[in-house]
């Protein structure tokens, strides 16, 4: 199997605070059972994507794999507006009592599915590629890390010692 070695020089060491943020979003991914998981993967990949070194290494890797990076990132970046539309429709449908209107919403949502499914897989692929290029790949997600939805953000620097390496993440 063609794996990326964790000691590979292509692995970027993430700043602890970024690692915490990504892990928090992933912990949220693990804890909540709703239809927003792809949005969580998107948010986690956004944090990694913003890191230039990881982004560059990921792009090089994807190019070597023969994947069209521009196409992939274009799809990735088109996620937010499309997802918002879908989320809106989902909300409207949940609130609607009239079955005819409900069905109209449902049909409209169906139009988005093929497009969104393609984007969804681009997000998954990009997320995995980004993860593979940083040291977070060997970190387990502690689902107990976030307490509840009101307190689901990473601890701020004054709340803990962020300079202590990986141990301080948990």
């Amino acid at each position: 199997m063609n794996k990326i070695n964790k000691n590979d020089e292509n692995i970027v060491q993430l700043p602890t605070v970024v690692k915490q943020m990504v892990l928090n979003v992933l912990a949220e991914f693990m804890q909540k059972n709703d239809a927003d998981d792809i949005e969580r993967l998107y948010r986690a990949s956004q944090m990694l994507y913003a890191h230039k070194e990881i982004r560059d290494k990921t792009n090089t890797y994807l190019e070597k794999k023969g994947l069209n990076v521009d196409d992939l990132t274009k799809k990735y970046l088109s996620f937010s507006p499309l997802y918002l539309k879908l989320k809106n429709l989902r909300q409207l449908m949940a609130e609607e009592k009239d079955e005819k209107i409900k069905s109209r919403y449902s049909n409209e949502m169906n139009k988005y599915f093929i497009k969104l499914s393609s984007i969804e897989m681009s997000i998954v692929e990009l997320f995995i590629s980004l993860v593979l290029h940083c040291d977070i790949q060997n970190t387990p997600i502690r689902s107990a890390y976030i307490k509840d939805s009101r307190d689901n953000r990473f601890p701020f620097p004054h709340q803990q010692n962020i300079g202590g390496g990986d141990e301080s993440v948990f």
Partner: peptide
Amino acid sequence: MFIIKDMVLKCL
């Protein structure tokens, strides 16, 4: 890679 398997396992 570990984190991906962790996610898959927990989803399961």
